[in-house]
Amino acid sequence: MFRQYIGWKFVLASIAVLIIVTTIWFVSNLTRKIQDEERKKVATWVEANRELLKSGPDANLNLAVEIVTNNTTIPLILTDKQGRILDSRNLDSLRIAQNPGYLQEQLQAFKKQHPPFAVEAGHQQYNYVYYGDSLILRQIRYYPYIQLGVVTLFIALVLFALSSTNRATQNQVWVGLAKETAHQLGTPLSSMEAWLEILRENEANTMMVTELAKDVDRLKLITDRFSKIGSVPKLEERDVLEQIENMTAYIRKRAPQKVRFSVHSAEKELPVMISPPLFDWVVENLLKNALDAMEGSGHIDINIDNHPTFVTIDISDSGKGIPKMHFEKVFKPGFSTKKRGWGLGLSLAKRIIEEYHKGRLFVKSSEINKGTTFRILLRK
């Protein structure tokens, strides 16, 4: 499904690029054609004005007058040889009245857009006609940028919809897998508890029963954790220091002897609203990842800091580190650098902290062959 999602992103991006390139090419050709047509119209308008100026009293000037009066779209400015403005057409009369410098600004813009036409004014004197682009031409020129915005918005909405659908599907898979696992563990656990009661009847089995009871309790805890995935957990006020100390002690007993654990905090007690079994799951997952990264020797430091509105828990190891480009990827489902495992541990841990506890879980820092620090941020 993830590859299919990436494939759809590539297809949509390719279609968007094709649409934009085709549109820009088409609009560029159309713009050149309209510019040529407008230059011809201005040339015809200038020629019609020449006819009006040099014609006699009996000349038939109907065509020339019609050409001159029919230009209602192309803005024009007439100047003398010294650049003084003599007349203008098809410009905003209201802005001309309100802003004395408006015509001069337009004249400078027209000079940059097109070369002028010379109009004979008598006695070898010439006036000059400057013209700008019509409103239609300006709209066509901006059309590709408008279309680019529309296509970008469309692609963004489609990708957001695909991402939301993909995330919802992943959530359904996780929830279904977790609840099915809890359900499947329930039956053998019930049977194991019954066998423990039978074994307790014989005092010779006391030591064996004690150890088996610990494993059964552990399996019950795991079942409880899985059963809570997908439902809103009940948050309780607990001392986060005690929770972390207990989980660290549990992992320390099962870690290699060359691994040193240390927990640091300036507080003696730090109450925070958490779901104990799920929070323990997150800490356990981070500690196990740290052990895997160190490969049998090193140290794990847990620093807990109290802030006015939140609590931070930094879990640092002296392991092989994580490349910076993978800081976000380590939380993606299926991503794993280990030879075994599904790559769901950190993804579920992030979900537990951010969705259920409304906190944050992220890679605070990491250096190759020096270690990594994960930070849990919990709101008070």
Score class of each variant (00 low, 15 high):
residue 319 G to R: 00
residue 49 N to P: 12
residue 306 N to T: 06
residue 356 Y to T: 03
residue 53 L to G: 09
residue 368 I to V: 08
residue 34 I to D: 05
residue 306 N to Q: 11
residue 126 Y to N: 10
residue 10 F to Q: 14
residue 310 F to V: 11
residue 291 L to F: 01
residue 287 L to F: 06
residue 267 E to W: 06
residue 87 D to L: 08
residue 366 S to F: 04
residue 300 I to G: 01
residue 215 D to W: 15
residue 10 F to L: 14
residue 137 L to M: 09
residue 357 H to P: 06
residue 329 K to W: 07
residue 161 A to D: 00
residue 38 E to K: 11
residue 372 T to R: 01
residue 72 T to H: 14
residue 229 I to Q: 00
residue 8 W to V: 11
residue 11 V to T: 15
residue 105 E to I: 09
residue 294 M to Q: 05
residue 371 G to D: 03
residue 150 V to K: 08
residue 355 E to S: 09
residue 33 K to Y: 13
residue 44 T to Q: 13
residue 222 I to T: 06
residue 343 G to R: 02
residue 179 K to T: 03
residue 62 N to T: 15
residue 358 K to S: 09
residue 235 L to M: 04
residue 231 S to V: 06
residue 182 A to S: 10
residue 340 R to W: 12
residue 215 D to H: 15
residue 194 A to M: 13
residue 312 T to M: 08
residue 191 S to M: 12
residue 130 Y to D: 02
residue 329 K to I: 09
residue 50 R to K: 10
residue 17 V to P: 04
residue 53 L to W: 11
residue 106 Q to F: 03
residue 327 F to K: 07
residue 185 L to D: 02
residue 342 W to R: 12
residue 371 G to K: 00
residue 253 K to S: 11
residue 14 S to V: 13
residue 51 E to I: 14
residue 149 G to K: 05
residue 125 Q to C: 12
residue 85 I to V: 11
residue 315 I to G: 02
residue 141 R to T: 15
residue 46 V to D: 01
residue 286 L to S: 01
residue 169 T to L: 04
residue 116 P to V: 05
residue 294 M to G: 02
residue 169 T to C: 04
residue 25 W to T: 10
residue 164 S to V: 03
residue 139 Q to D: 15
residue 102 Y to E: 07
residue 380 K to M: 08
residue 302 I to T: 09
